[in-house]
């Protein structure tokens, strides 16, 4: 990812350095953006429009039309409807409105103009002809989401996911809608699916733990704790001193402290039901939090230590053996 960023940066610098319009450079940039899927709409709509407007004859014919499509989408992103309209007219003249890709662009233009119903109609006609056109489905879903019609969006996403069930970005979308509607149980299900699809991305474990914590209840606090801990395993706190950026695992550390604290406060939980390892983990997290604060933001130290004091748990009283048996486990 970082190498791609560097590559983009070099393109960006070259563009700004060159005085005259360097069409080869712009073409390469657009090519690169298509491949890396970065969303740099403003720059594309600026330079790309000039490219397809004045240098179209120099482009490879096959690629030229792809470029045209790309520039149109970026113009729509930047609300430059007239530019998009003129370019789209050229596409329509070439491919007529029978082409699915042209139709989709027309739909997007309608969306941009605020003609929602027309846009939906366009997408529906596409879907009648090509029922597996995932792009049109996604556009429809995003329309409903932007309109705030969450029920319909969820419904459509569900049908979409019945077909494309490995598209974890769609699952992410569904999860975010569910979180908006506070239905955390469904969001958890979505995140389980995401974890199955991307099992080594620690961010999703953090997110899963956050949702589980939000659900509340002693069992869910422990579940959250476990997932926070696992995210730390994947994003090890021992690695960061060698990296040149601040640690990225603070959410997990705060999460561990909060979930253990909440577990002790909840009605079914309590300090005595904690495992020894969990208590140790709490101590470690508190220490780690203080260390990080000292290292990176010493001025926030008061706040952090106040937080730790507030969320501190009392010492365990009973012998650990009894506790082990009472321990509420999530796997019943």
């Amino acid at each position: 990812m970082t190498t791609e960023l560097i590559e983009y940066q070099s393109y960006h610098d070259q563009l700004h350095k060159s005085r005259s319009f360097n069409w080869v450079l712009v073409r390469d940039l657009l090519r690169f953006l298509r491949k890396s899927k970065f969303r740099k709409s403003l720059i594309v709509s600026q330079y790309g429009y000039k490219l397809v407007d004045q240098y179209f004859s120099k482009l490879d014919p096959q690629e030229g039309w792809d470029l045209l499509e790309q520039v149109i989408v970026c113009c729509l992103d930047c609300n430059q409807i007239e530019k998009a309209q003129t370019l789209l007219n050229r596409l329509v003249a070439k491919f007529t409105t029978n082409s699915v890709r042209v139709k989709r662009l027309i739909g997007m233009l309608y969306e941009c103009q605020g003609l929602i119903q027309e846009a939906i109609n366009v997408y529906q006609t596409i879907l009648q002809e090509y029922p597996s056109d995932s792009m049109s489905m996604k556009r429809q879903i995003s329309i409903y989401k932007s309109q705030g019609i969450h029920n319909r969006a969820i419904q459509l996403l569900n049908t979409y996911l019945q077909i494309y069930m490995c598209d974890f970005e769609a699952w992410l979308e569904l999860a975010s809608i569910h979180i908006n509607l506070l239905s955390y149980k469904s969001a958890l299900f979505c995140y389980e699916e995401i974890i199955l699809n991307a099992p080594i991305n620690y961010l999703f474990y953090v997110k899963y733990a956050e949702i589980s914590y939000s659900l509340g209840g002693a069992d869910n606090f422990i579940l959250a704790l476990k997932y926070y801990t696992h995210s730390l395993e994947l994003n090890s706190p021992l690695d960061y001193p060698e990296q040149d950026h601040p640690p990225t695992n603070l959410p997990s550390i705060y999460g561990i402290i909060m979930s253990i604290y909440s577990f002790c406060e909840s009605s079914h939980g309590g300090v005595n039901k904690l495992k020894d390892s969990q208590v140790n983990l709490m101590e470690w997290a508190q220490k780690q939090l203080l260390d990080i604060t000292n290292q990176y933001t010493p001025d926030k130290k008061d706040i952090v230590s106040a937080f730790i004091k507030l969320t501190d748990i009392p010492k365990k009283s009973t012998t650990p053996k009894d506790v082990e048996q009472q321990q509420p486990t999530i796997e019943k």
């Binding site: 476990k226 997932y227 395993e233 999530i330």
Partner: peptide
């Protein structure tokens, strides 16, 4: 996740 804390 069974004994993830200990392992960690």
């Amino acid at each position: 996740m069974d004994n993830v804390e200990e392992r960690f």
